[in-house]
Design a binder for these strands. Sequence first.
DNA 1: TAGGCGTGGCT
DNA 2: TAGCCAAGCCT
Length: 354
Amino acid sequence: MTEAQFAARLIAWQQQHGRKDLPWQQQVTAYRVWVSEIMLQQTQVASVIGYFGRFMQSFPSVQTLAKASDDEVLHLWTGLGYYSRVRNLKKTAHIISEQYGGEFPASVKALAELPGIGRSTAGAILSLAMGLPAAILDGNVKRVLARYSATSGWPGESKTAAILWDLAERFTPTEQTAIYNQAMMDLGATLCTPKLPACAECPVQSGCRAFARGSQSLYPTPKPRKTLPQKRSLMPIFARKDGCILLERRPPAGIWGGLWSLPELDTIEALEPLAQRYALDLGERRALALISHSFSHFRLAIEPWLIEVNESANAVAEDHYLWYDPDNPKRLGLAAPVAKLLKYAAQINRRKAL
DNA sequence: TAGGCGTGGCT
DNA sequence: TAGCCAAGCCT
């Protein structure tokens, strides 16, 4: 099968079986495609749909996003993960409004220089939003191409990535590139799935080297896994009489960067110094059930403590902490397990009030 | 180049 | 249950 035939079959398949009703496929603009592509990085379509709608409701244009506060954007990202995407999103929104007059540049090079946009996301914006010929190489395309060409090697290795990018560039047609790229993603998401691919329905089965050998499950070569380190931390839920709970802002980089969180302690011995810093008188305390939270690179066991406090004046910077009212919550970014704990603590508090 | 960076769904 | 995986990018 020639490269042109491959592309033609994908395009025909897309028109019959592809996805055409995703939110970012309606009222297509570079802005909407860009936001969707950032949200979809390492994140499944089903998870993104709700977030995308709320985001567009609040920030309908690159200018409204550029002017928004960090807390407001992080609030709408809470639970989606990879929060550095938000910092990069805001930086790029600024650059587009200030330096590009509100229009996205129309080249891979210029797009990929923007924070948070790499080669594949640049290709997606160019092809899907602008109709220009540009290749993409996301997880779906990698899987389709690795199987079709029976290419071994983990795609995270530069050598394997170079081979796959070369294939992607060769197969990507200069006409109808948007439909073709969407077809490759949809084929990977619906037929050429990681497990139990539906090869019987595949439009390019006849040229697929993995299918010919019955070795679909060998591609792409999986990432070499190491056992995840296990960490543990204490999270004091300092609750005032009025039900408000102490939150601290996390540093901009690192895990949960820029989000609001409960304080994190290594040991219970660190509780007194922390209480002193905030000038808290500690009352009754009770341990709540352990929470296990899993990240891509470590596992965290959280030991939450609900602690009643009386507060007096302290000298901690105002933008470093706040008293969060669960019954009248401010709009800000919260780490997922912290959001769960706050709900739980509010429940306990409400029961006590009855 | 390898590792940091989240979360939820699925098996 | 525990591991795998998802429309990757940055340092």
